[in-house]
Design a protein around this nucleic acid. Sequence first.
DNA 1: CCGACACTTAGCCATTTTGCAAACCATGGT
DNA 2: ACCATGGTTTGCAAAATGGCTAAGTGTCGG
Lengths: 109, 109
Amino acid sequence: MVDITQQMNACFAALADPTRRAVVEALARAPASVSDLHAPHNMALPTFMRHLSVLEKCGLVRSEKVGRVRTCFIEADPLLQVQGWMEWQRIVVEKQIESRDQIPFALDP
Amino acid sequence: MVDITQQMNACFAALADPTRRAVVEALARAPASVSDLHAPHNMALPTFMRHLSVLEKCGLVRSEKVGRVRTCFIEADPLLQVQGWMEWQRIVVEKQIESRDQIPFALDP
DNA sequence: CCGACACTTAGCCATTTTGCAAACCATGGT
DNA sequence: ACCATGGTTTGCAAAATGGCTAAGTGTCGG
C-alpha cells in the first residue's frame, strides 16, 4: 500500500521537469519505445533513462520489455489523483473569490 | 513576460512538497498571515518562510505586509495553468484508453 | 522607552537531482 | 558468427533542496 501523500510528492516532482512532461504528453497519446521517446530530446540516453525511471517510480508510467525493446505506457491512476487535487483547489479558490466579490469589505471589520 | 514552461516547472516543483501543498490548500480557502500558516507545521519559522518564498517565486502566492504582519493570498492564474495542463492530459489519456478498447489489436499489424 | 511579537537575514549541513561519459549486456538481422 | 541496435550500469561533478541555529530588523502595546 502506497502513501497517497508521497505519491503526490513524487508525481509533482516528476512533472516539474519539462522533459518528463513532454514524455507524459507523448505517452498520453500513445505508448512508445524508449528510443522513440528519447529521439526528440537533446540529451544523452542514460540521462533520459533516468527521467523515465523517475516517471516509473512515481507510477505515472509503466513499461515492459519485449526482446530488446522496452515499451512505455502511461498510467491513468496517479494522473487522475493529481488532476483531482488540482481541480479541487481550483474549485475552492473560485469559491473564495466569489464570496470575496459578494462581501467586498468582509476583511475590514 | 514570463516563460510558460518555466512557470510550470516552478509550480510543479513547488507543489511537490506536502508543506507547500498544505499552504496552498489553506490559502485556497482564505488569506492568512505567515504565523497562522506556520502554526500547524512542525518546523522552524525560517524554514517555513523558505517554503512560502518558493510559492511566491512561482507565482502561486502573493503577499503584502502591513505593520509587522505579512498576509498571504493565493493567486488563481498559475493554479489554472497547471490545472489546465493536468486536465488536458487526462482527456488525451482517456481518449487513448477508449480507442484501445474499441480496436483491441491495433498494435499488432 | 522597553519588551514582546512577527518576521527576516545569514550561514551551515546533509541529501537529492541532473547532467555527462564510458563501458557493458542482450537481441535481431545477415 | 558478427555487428549494429536498443538499452543498462557505473561513476562522477555541479547545482538545487530542505532542514537547522543564531542573530537582526521593525512594529505594536503598555
